[in-house]
Amino acid sequence: MTHPHLRVETDGPVRTLTLDHPEKRNAQTPSLWAALAEEARSVPEDVRVVVLRGAGDAFSAGIDTAMFSPAGVPGEESVAELARGGPEGIDRGIAAYQQGFTRWAECPAVVVAQVHGYAIGAGFQLALAADLRIAALDAWFAMRETSLGLVPDLGGTGPLVHLVGYARALEICATGRKVSAPEAHAIGLVGSLAPAADLDEATGSLVDALLAAPAPALRALKPLLRAAAAGERADQLARERRAQIGLLQALLGGPAS
């Protein structure tokens, strides 16, 4: 186990990563993002599909909001500590956090997010970090960062715009509203749906279909299609960080830029 709240299981060519902190609805922290980045970097060549899922009744409730409190989360960098580094420190910190999401695009395996319950904020962005998304009919997605006076900054803005278009992405992020699984499917955010009771089986069927493709072709296809869709990805990540710096400083009473 690489992290106390991340369970990693491998069955032949399939590796399953389970966010495993159900009592906090799989809320995320910097140490979890570091573990996710390391997992993405270390997927062995014989693993062809990675499944990201959540334990309990939700995929992920997003960032652990205790990070915004004065006490923070024991053993984790708090938002206040991040902000004390000034613009350069915030930029470096968020760049490190982003690795837990963006590294999955570079992982040679096809990454499938299996979403049930809800995927909020960082949870939504982790689902967007996958190549494919399958969701239970009871799932819903929301970008709630704007309710905190912030913006999504974990690599999710680019994939969201690519999937649903600029105007719809703006509306989803600015309002922070819930996007139901049927709507997510209709707008292209989710590729397929299944009843909650059948989600594991449906995910298994999708994985089997991916594994039916010849391994070299599948391995070559992912970077080929991502390069066509992503454009200048590093520029978008830098824009996320720049947008967040002033907002984060203002939120914590520091100088706004």
Rank of each mutant, 00 (worst) to 15 (best):
R103V: 11
I187N: 05
A58W: 02
E76N: 08
E45V: 14
A83H: 03
I63F: 11
A122I: 07
A136N: 07
A209R: 08
L224M: 15
A217Q: 15
S192F: 13
R177C: 10
M1Q: 14
A127F: 00
G176E: 10
H116T: 10
Q99V: 08
F101A: 07
P70D: 13
E232V: 14
T203W: 04
F101N: 06
G89C: 02
D91I: 14
E240H: 09
V112R: 02
G253W: 01
A129N: 06
D198W: 08
V43W: 01
A184P: 00
D91T: 12
V110N: 05
G254Q: 13
G253V: 01
G253Y: 04
S205A: 15
A227L: 14
E9K: 11
T102P: 03
D64G: 05
D200F: 07
E39V: 14
P74F: 07
L160D: 05
E171I: 15
T102I: 15
A213G: 12
A66I: 12
S147A: 14
V110G: 03
V79P: 07
S180H: 00
A136R: 06
L199A: 04
H3C: 02
E240N: 00
D200R: 03
T29H: 01
G75R: 03
K222W: 04
E76C: 04
L225Q: 13
E38D: 15
A184N: 00
T203L: 05
R239T: 11
G75Y: 05
E232F: 13
A61P: 04
R92G: 02
P74W: 06
P152L: 02
V50P: 00
Y166C: 10
C107F: 08
G231R: 09
G191K: 05
P70G: 12
A167Y: 08
V14H: 03
